[in-house]
Nucleic acid binder design. Sequence first.
DNA 1: AATATTGTCTGTTATTATCGAACAAATAAA
DNA 2: TTTATTTGTTCGATAATAACAGACAATATT
Lengths: 259, 259
Amino acid sequence: MSVQSVQRALTILTLFSHRRPVLGISELSRLMDLPKGTVHGITRTLVDQGFLSQDEQTKKYRLGLKIHELGIVLSGTLELNQKSAGPCHQLSRRTGLLSRIGIWDGGSVVITLNTHPNPMPVLPYQVGPRIHAYCSAIGKAILAFLDEKTIRQYLDRTRMTAFTPHTVTVKKKLLEDLKATRRRGYAIDRQEAVQGMGCMGAPIFDHQGGVAGALSLSGPVNQVLGDQTEELAGEVLSTAAEISRLFGYFPAIMETGAS
Amino acid sequence: MSVQSVQRALTILTLFSHRRPVLGISELSRLMDLPKGTVHGITRTLVDQGFLSQDEQTKKYRLGLKIHELGIVLSGTLELNQKSAGPCHQLSRRTGLLSRIGIWDGGSVVITLNTHPNPMPVLPYQVGPRIHAYCSAIGKAILAFLDEKTIRQYLDRTRMTAFTPHTVTVKKKLLEDLKATRRRGYAIDRQEAVQGMGCMGAPIFDHQGGVAGALSLSGPVNQVLGDQTEELAGEVLSTAAEISRLFGYFPAIMETGAS
DNA sequence: AATATTGTCTGTTATTATCGAACAAATAAA
DNA sequence: TTTATTTGTTCGATAATAACAGACAATATT
């Protein structure tokens, strides 16, 4: 079935995180529950190919530049990113707010693109790659338009913890929120993830009408969800629709004549 | 020594490029010169762990989001990026030009950060991750301050091809350029990589005085290398020095008294 | 100075991944 | 449509391969 050593190698890579950027052999062998010799062989191969780099002095390991390269290849070839780049930028320029694109992947959201209204000293992605679906506009915008089975699965498997006093942690309330999201066409995040930050997010559909991802606009709460909420919502919705159109999605108008 | 299957798995990953974002099993087995069964086992493992994703319809493979995640972990934890982000941004805002940070890695340069003066519809990295050292300001800025042995190795192993009429393809001329770079403290790229684009780059040193990377400023030739060249050079040099200082590098003033 | 922990290496064993052929499904050609 | 080719996938036998444990020196800690 699955190749053991490769599996182990990949697991080793995923042990490196923002919180734990450098790891030594002993630490790895402890985490993996494998003999040092075994881990060393794999690690060596990863270093040889540039997926890990080893500090010459401390002998410890960190992620290698090859990963950086591949990451760029990926984000550059992501269809969603390619189609969203232009519209997303214009949106953030018109509104003066931060706009982002996220994609659904196995129970959470991965941010794949963000554009800044003002020049900022930013690393490619600011907030971190993976965010929770239940407390983000992007997440809720996607979730709301997934099939019911997937939503149920998500609710069953997710433990909702609060990040701010405003975070919704009750499943029933989330379901209501999703319903409201479907009704109005876009999702709202009222300081649910970050204190003081408000977001609105709209889904992006592919040519089959499936959810390809979502677009969000975020900034200070009073600025995003204040007087001009409706204007902004319109902007977000039309931009998302514009991107959906690039995917070949043209919502068919079913209602004809009557009423 | 090296674990074969892991090596193969990593090679498979690197076969995916901007030019070839999707690959099938047969294609892979041809490229790897391995039986389909073998490749399939490895590919499956890569998919299971999220390093590849498989299109449900075409059954073909592309890079998975796990790689995106790891790429972000890496660039976020790169010491050079962390230290450069602020100064780099301010530089690009003051000058209105694009500024980038690059790092030396096995004979070429990897761009790890770039900041835009104006909001632009950009993917995280615009120019592509790896660039040649001999025809870029960043590359020459780094190269010039590496030890002689490494420079010689680089020259021996590199075939210099021309990208524009201005590209230097003669090794002797490159050596002279590096000498001039050392003398003036920064490197110049006069449309050597891209027609119409000019760059200047200055090295960044770590606490031991080794080259940690380089900073570059680029834009239209006449704008970068025109009247205000000297001003800009000063900006670039002082910004690079500022970052070096964050690394704990304080160039000691050796000349005392006499002459 | 003494102890503990680190990363690395070696050879032997049997686990493990490779191989090649056969499979059905999908695509391309006739 | 039918034929032919290509696709991704499965399977089981063989032998090559990677795992293992212990020993090593070097570094870090006490």
